[in-house]
Design a protein around this nucleic acid. Structure first.
Length: 656
DNA sequence: GCAAGGTC
């Protein structure tokens, strides 16, 4: 029997060919530069195998010609417009290869990643192949890691393609297209009509169910920083000078168990009580072993966060670099949600490849000589790719590539090492009815910290204390402090928020951040070596505008996307049909669209302008509290502060 | 000139 196997990407088709053929296969080129066909006998199932692949989704969706032009219809009509699906022009060579190979095959076996998108890509492949051979037998290989035993098992026990999962993805594709296009056209057309700046620059004011919540996070933090008012607080500072084994007169600070309090009168009266008691008593001395846990195996999210925070590289940049290193064979597949290694994973041969490195080679060697410990297991597994790890030693990298490779390698070695061990001493003290404590830390074994400088764990010595002893504090003062301003949002914070709230995926999070920057919704600002994200006036305006319109579900918060995700899960489980999901969700967005459009037009209605005189600052706020003022020419397009308590003309710069 | 999701 001739079996045609189709994987989601070139790397997988190659790996499964190597495993199933035991390395004995022939390779032939296709018209697509990256894609090869591999052929071999697979005697275990009496078959002749051809293994090839696609490159992600084969098809793309768009409106038909009748609705594609922006002025061809009212934006609202897009919700009910048909959607066409075609093989994209740059995928024709891949399609041709599938058609040719399918004609020769008796069975089509789908080897796409075992996730929802993979199931949908599988369906795209089936549709193309059935055009070449209508009665081809279709099977699906199910695997959770590229490990010999699993791949053989998958080849010998194929299952059926999961139509429900593919349906859920199809619903999402249609939904995102309709909602995105309808809102984008509506926003853009209304705003361009009124703002010279937008129409001259031909700026698209895009809406997307992922980009808006992402922008929402940036604006929310910005508002928090802007509205921050510092508050004074009080705390009792107690310390004692006493010699330790290594230094004389070391000052030990005892922290107040109450932390700090915001009521000055209360603080003063408590302090008076403490002062009335000249001696502090040690109530307890606790000594115990403590650990600093080694990091979890590396996912794409974590890599992007670390890249931004530790390596000062944008999430998109980190992903691009790791993609390149992967192409060169230095790294495993860089888009993974998995933070647990398979129990059968071959750690040792990978560790041995790092022994030659001048910087961390000695550490790698120490792992091979007894320092090894099985990595911790996280909670995520995408059932398709292992955590990111180095697959070969790369000695000649420079610049950012070197930084990324070094981080990934050190992280992998740290995962294979042991937790750091320490010894912690806590001294509890009572004085005037108040409780204080001091801690000391002695780092016993640094272990993984030796190879992972990104984590800090510094010991500090504490003098000897005995339970029941009394001492007179060297300092006991009531001190005043004030709450400090929260910091702006960093890229790493944003990746964390998106990950937590289910906005985007490992492969798309970086793109969404880039999109809101490209659209001029957000501006990057360097402060020292940290990059902060600040919303532009346009970005603030859009979010604040929508928030004030009073939709019952906010487009700038993660809830709507979460609901879409939940409906997709229901479609996958078979408790909801694809049609029902689309119907429900589209109705909801239609309502929101009607309200949003009405409010947009109301707020910036040109007829309001005739009431303005040159020097007025006008509270136009009865509608949504939007403040509006007009520049001297009194043309609405030259509104200075408009719509969103923000200047939208002549520039979006956010410098205060 | 629109989205988000794959991947190169």
């Amino acid at each position: 029997m001739r079996v045609l196997c189709v994987a989601e990407k070139p790397s997988i088709s190659k790996s499964i060919s190597q495993i199933l053929s035991g390395g004995q296969f022939t390779t032939s080129a296709t018209r697509s530069q990256f894609i090869k066909n591999y052929e071999f006998d697979y005697p275990q199932t009496n078959s002749f195998y051809t293994v090839t692949c696609v490159s992600g989704h084969l098809t793309g969706s768009d409106f038909p010609e009748s609705h594609r032009k922006w002025n061809s219809c009212d934006a609202f009509e897009l919700f009910d417009a048909p959607v066409e699906t075609h093989v994209a022009s740059d995928k024709k060579a891949i399609e041709d290869n599938l058609l040719t190979q399918a004609r020769r095959a008796d069975m089509l076996m789908i080897w796409t990643d075992c996730d929802r998108e993979g199931e949908h890509i599988g369906l795209e492949i089936v549709r193309v192949c059935k055009r070449a051979k209508r009665n081809i037998v279709v099977k699906r290989a199910r695997f959770s890691a590229i490990i010999a035993q699993q791949i053989h098992h998958a080849a010998q026990h194929p299952v059926e393609l999961d139509r429900a999962q593919a349906d859920a993805v199809e619903a999402r594709i249609t939904l995102d297209l309709k909602v995105g296009a309808a809102f984008t056209r509506m926003q853009t057309q209304i705003l361009q009509n009124h703002f010279v700046q937008l129409s001259e620059a031909r700026n698209v004011v895009s809406y997307g169910p992922c980009q808006f919540p992402t922008l929402g996070f940036v604006v929310q933090k910005w508002n928090l920083v802007k509205s921050f008012v510092s508050e004074p607080f009080w705390h009792i500072h107690m310390s004692l000078r006493r010699n330790t084994s290594s230094s004389d007169g070391e000052e030990t600070v005892f922290n107040w168990r109450r932390g700090h309090i915001f009521d000055e009168d209360a603080a003063v009266s408590i302090y008076d009580f403490v002062l009335s008691d000249p001696l502090a008593r040690v109530t307890k001395v606790t000594k115990k072993e403590t650990k600093k846990w080694k990091p979890l195996p590396l996912t794409t999210f974590e890599l992007q966060k670390a890249g931004s925070r530790l390596l000062r590289l944008a999430p998109k940049k980190v992903l691009d670099i790791s993609e390149k290193l992967y192409q060169q064979g230095f790294l495993s597949y860089p888009r993974t949600e998995t933070d647990q290694f398979d129990p059968q994973f071959d750690f040792h041969s990978l560790i041995r490849k790092q022994v030659v490195d001048p910087t961390w080679g000695a550490f790698a060697n120490s792992l091979e000589e007894g320092g090894f410990a099985v990595p911790r297991k996280g909670k995520n597994n995408d059932k398709a790719h292992p955590p990111i790890h180095p697959t070969a030693h790369a000695g000649n990298l420079v610049g950012d590539e070197r930084k990324v490779y070094e981080f990934i390698t050190r992280r992998f070695l740290a995962c294979c090492s042991k937790d750091a061990l320490g010894f912690q001493t806590t001294v509890d003290v009572e004085c005037g009815g108040e409780f204080f404590y001091a801690t000391g830390l002695l780092v016993l074994e640094r272990n993984y910290l030796e190879v992972y400088p990104y984590d800090k764990w510094v010991g500090h010595e504490i003098p000897e204390f005995e339970e029941g002893e009394e001492f007179q504090p060297s300092v006991c003062e009531l001190r005043e402090g004030k709450t400090s301003k929260p910091s702006l949002l960093t890229e790493a914070d944003l990746v964390t928020l998106m990950d937590k709230n289910g906005i985007g995926t490992d492969a798309t999070i970086a793109q969404h951040i880039q999109t809101i920057i490209d659209r001029d919704y957000v501006i990057e600002k360097m402060e020292g070596s940290t990059k902060y994200l600040i919303p532009s006036k346009l970005g603030i305006g859009l979010i604040e505008g929508y928030n004030q319109i009073g939709l019952n579900k906010s487009v700038s918060k993660p809830q709507l996307r979460r609901e879409t995700e939940r409906s997709m899960v229901q479609v996958c489980e078979g408790t909801k049909t694809k049609a029902a999901m689309l119907e429900e969700t589209i109705v909801q967005y239609k309502e929101m669209f009607i309200i949003a459009k009405r409010e947009f037009e109301k707020v910036i209605s040109p007829c309001s302008a005739k009431f303005f005189t040159p020097s007025w600052t006008f509270q136009f706020g009865q509608i949504h509290g939007f403040e509006t003022s007009v520049k001297s020419t009194c043309r609405l397009v030259e509104c200075n502060r408009f719509f969103f308590e923000a200047s939208i003309y002549p520039t979006y710069s956010t410098s205060e």
